[in-house]
Design a protein around this nucleic acid. Structure first.
Length: 568
DNA sequence: ACCGAATGGCCCC
DNA sequence: TGGGGCCCCTTCGG
């Protein structure tokens, strides 16, 4: 909360404004102070007014100091500063300011509580209207694809919705990305905001390794070298791409886009999107100024000069090679576009298609088997799906309203395909907005059927009260791994026949059949100076360290099996 | 228990 | 086109 002095000034001016403009409401500040309203116990000034008479002196002193504040705060909404309503948490439920557009669907005239996208399905996710009609190419595509894919016999979709284990204080800062080991099913790789790489075998719970000297700030992307299971690439906001052997901890710098060092935040290049193509022998990374860098995997040299593929000065948030057509690349960025490119003819302005969005595009992915669909996550609270890259790309085939538009202090939410889902419809994404679960505000992880927009499952655990923006479904097993704040969690499908469960558990453990749910609802400083990290991490060490410092630590395992009693 | 900070995007001038 | 102010449904450590 803002310091009282600041708040007082704002409130006061607003109150004066209010009094000038609106005289429909009688001015009755003093009298209102007498009522002790129970719904405002979180308001610090109310505590002052409702304090018992035993500390009268103190009360008097305080009231003397901030009498005008006390009066004003009680009457004024903290969002719009108007009288007559209040925004904020009421228990586990957040009450919107009615003067603002709906926080969920962004349309004016209602609040999140009454938003049709929330009420109809109860959980924010609803299928949006189709915004274009199918072209003949679409039907050809469907006919071709349907012959190959088991559309008619939809497999039972297994939801990994029971907390298997989680670790606490494994990372020092919030998790920013997760990746499964390409061949060892039990190993999870995690990157954090401070630049550390975590390696965790969640079956052998105690086996955790942290390499914390490879990068000096946010790890934005981890990609394994598919030709060598022990080696991976990491792209970081420190402006480098590292190539690390996770067994030995030896690391080399593949690319440094700030060869001249630090000259202030306006010129510092940070690397966000990254993807790798074995066919092409290329590692592609993109920075926060709209540039794409192509690095040859063999020579470790840049193939050519950086190419600007998004608006000058805007961040490129993601890159994805088409899994079926190695020449196709998908990019997305802060210029509100996702773009399709031909890697063979990659130059500024040569995109094959530009997919327009309303706001920042957090992620854009081709579907993982056929590569013919595109799914994007946009900050306007919509997941967009294009059913065929060969069809009309003017507008998406579906827009799914889903709450994920909070970005400032969280890792951006990204809807990610289930790599095991042959129908290429199931996706996972964390939800920003909270629901009231037995009086506790929890932020579920949603599993969505992007074909219909229906919610297949919402995954929660009463012990995980933080938001879970980073989620990854296992490419081979029925496992979901989540990064929530500093913790990593592993989910498995619910095991049947356990002791009686609470309503909450029942709710989260419903088993869904794909397509028709059985449940009731189908549907001179470095760029970063962490508050706790006073030293200049960019200044020390050479930039192109050939060998990363290896900081291996065995942690006492702090994870729990079964019902998930892990603390956050 | 409280407070400050992180540095993200958008909008306006 | 760029800088500054504003937003103010988070999370953690000090």
């Amino acid at each position: 909360m803002a310091p009282n002095t600041t708040r007082a000034r704002f409130v006061h001016t607003n109150r004066e404004k209010e009094e000038e403009s609106s005289d429909d409401e009688p001015v009755e500040e003093e009298q209102e102070e007498d009522e002790t309203d129970e719904e405002e116990e979180e308001d610090e000034t109310t505590k002052v007014t409702t304090r018992s008479s035993s500390d009268k002196e103190e009360k008097i002193v305080k009231e003397k100091k901030k009498e005008p504040i006390t009066i004003s705060l009680k009457k004024v909404c903290k969002v719009c500063k108007r009288k007559g309503h209040k925004a904020g948490f009421k228990g586990a439920i957040y009450i919107d300011c009615p003067m603002k557009p709906c926080f969920l669907c962004k349309k004016p005239g209602h609040t999140t509580m009454t938003c049709p996208h929330r009420v109809t399905m109860e959980h924010g996710v609803i299928p949006a209207q189709k915004t274009n009609t199918k072209t003949s190419i679409d039907y050809v595509f469907q006919r071709e694809l349907k012959a190959k894919l088991p559309y008619m016999v939809k497999p039972k979709y297994v939801i990994p919705n029971q907390l298997e284990c989680g670790n606490v204080r494994f990372h020092a800062r919030r998790i920013t990305c997760l990746e499964f080991h390409p061949t060892n099913d039990n190993v999870i790789l995690s990157g954090d905001k401070k630049g550390a790489l975590g390696i965790w075998d969640y079956v052998k719970l105690h086996e955790k390794t942290v390499y914390d000297s490879i990068h000096s700030c946010i790890v934005n992307n981890i990609k394994f070298d598919l030709k060598n299971d022990d080696k991976l690439y990491m792209a970081s906001s420190d402006g480098t791409v590292s190539y690390t052997d996770i067994v030995t901890g030896l690391s080399s710098c593949l690319l440094d886009v700030n060869p001249n060092g630090w000259h202030g935040p306006k010129t510092w290049h940070m690397l966000y999107g990254m993807d790798m193509s074995n066919e092409k022998g290329l590692v592609l990374v993109a920075d926060n100024f709209g540039y794409l860098y192509m690095v040859d995997k063999c020579s470790n040299k840049m193939v050519e000069k950086p190419i600007r593929i998004h608006k000058k000065g805007s961040k490129i948030t993601g890159l994805h090679f088409n899994p079926a057509r190695p020449d196709l690349l998908l990019s997305c960025g802060n210029d509100h576009f996702a773009r399709i490119w031909d890697v063979r003819r990659l130059e500024s302005g040569s995109s094959l298609a530009d997919l327009a969005h309303v706001r920042v595009v957090n992620s854009a992915y081709f579907s993982l088997a056929s590569g013919t669909k595109i799914m994007t996550t946009c900050q306007d609270n919509r997941i967009r799906v294009w059913d065929s890259i060969f069809g009309n790309l003017e507008s998406p085939n579906r827009e799914i309203v889903h709450s994920h538009d909070f970005n400032r202090h969280l890792t951006p939410f990204r809807a990610e395909w289930d790599p095991k889902d042959e129908t290429e419809t199931v996706a996972v994404i964390g939800r920003y907005i909270s629901e009231n679960y037995d009086g506790v505000a929890l932020h579920p992880i949603d599993i969505i059927d992007t074909g219909t927009g229906s919610l297949l499952a919402e995954i929660t655990d009463p012990d995980i009260t933080t938001i879970t923006p980073v989620n990854k479904l296992h490419p081979r097993a029925d496992i979901l791994v989540s990064g929530s704040s500093r913790s990593v969690f592993v989910w498995k499908p619910k095991v049947e026949s356990e002791e009686p469960q609470s309503e909450h558990l029942k709710r989260k453990q419903r088993e869904f059949i794909y397509g028709s749910a059985t449940g009731k609802k189908s549907n001179g400083k470095g760029p970063y100076n962490d508050s706790s990290d006073g030293e200049d991490r960019f200044g020390k060490d050479g930039k192109n360290k050939k060998v990363a410092k290896k900081t291996e630590t065995k942690f006492t395992h702090n994870a729990t099996k079964g019902k998930g009693k892990s603390k956050m």
